[in-house]
């Protein structure tokens, strides 16, 4: 670009179209005003777009949330507004998440069907593994999905069904497991009930332990949780129930595969 003097415009604007050439202070003032005007104009553009997009974004986020929950609990199983029928769980050590957790309650014709909540496995190979768990009112697991993880590609990432080449995917073996002591929440290598992939035990072990812990903590309180009014804090449900049994505890009976 040509070596322009401070008040010359780039391009083809004739000089007389501009205000009379001001001094240095005037140039700076003029630039500041123009920059301010540009900022206002483009901020307005963004504000208008934001307003127009706000409602669709809310709907998209909700649809995405329901779609995710649909992977662990078939949408046909419930008929209530799952996203509104929630209670706030206190920070439970068994869930592995710092801070409160929103728990969704699925019902069909008013009858309890399942609880859907997030949990976290802190001991994945490369950091925490975030899980979505659905627990049926009967106490058995409806389904588990990995929401976020950083496991090694091609090795530990089979816990994510999108990356799993097995059929059915590894994660589906959680469906139908009950939370009675009969289920041994360990991988087979450690004497438990859960399959794993050789050479990548750590990821599977972390998920199995986390689901076992979370299910064992939530299951005893499930009747109390279904009874709470929507939006309530669920601290009481956990104070009255006995301490969560140890998910790693050995069970005497084995479940056939």
């Amino acid at each position: 670009m040509s070596d322009a003097t401070p008040d010359t415009q780039p391009g083809d604007v004739p000089a007389q179209a501009l205000p009379p050439a001001p001094g240095a202070a005037g140039t700076a003032m003029r630039s500041a005003v123009l920059l301010g005007l540009f900022t206002v104009a483009f901020t307005a553009l963004m504000a208008v777009t934001y307003e127009a997009a706000r409602e669709p974004i809310r709907l998209s986020v909700e649809a995405r949330r329901l779609e995710l929950i649909g992977q662990v609990l078939p949408p046909a199983d419930y008929d209530n507004a799952l996203l509104e029928d929630t209670v706030q769980l206190p920070a439970l050590g068994a869930l592995g998440i710092d801070g409160p957790v929103t728990l969704h309650r699925a019902r069909r014709a008013g009858e309890p069907v399942a609880l859907v909540f997030e949990a976290q496995a802190p001991d994945g190979y490369s950091g925490a593994i975030r899980l979505l768990i659905a627990l049926r009112a009967s106490g058995e697991v409806a389904g588990v999905r990995v929401i976020a993880h950083r496991e090694t590609p091609g090795l530990g990432d089979y816990i994510d069904p999108a990356k799993d080449r097995a059929n059915p995917p590894w994660i589906t073996q959680f469906a139908g497991r009950d939370t009675s002591p009969a289920t041994r929440w360990k991988v087979r290598k450690d004497g438990g009930d859960f399959a794993y992939m050789s050479g990548a035990t750590i990821s599977a072990r972390a998920v199995v332990h986390a689901v076992g812990r979370a299910a064992a903590a939530i299951a005893p309180a499930r009747d109390a949780l279904f009874g709470l009014p929507a939006g309530a804090a669920a601290d009481e449900a956990f104070k009255t129930s006995p301490a969560a049994p140890d998910a790693h505890g050995d069970a005497s009976r084995s479940t056939p595969q």
Binding site: P6, Q9, P10, G11, D12, T27, R30, L34, L35, F38
Partner: peptide
């Protein structure tokens, strides 16, 4: 381009 002062063009472009 005729409205954008030469010396503040980069901030305006980025904006």
């Amino acid at each position: 381009r005729t409205l954008i002062p030469h010396e503040i063009r980069i901030p305006v472009f980025i904006l």
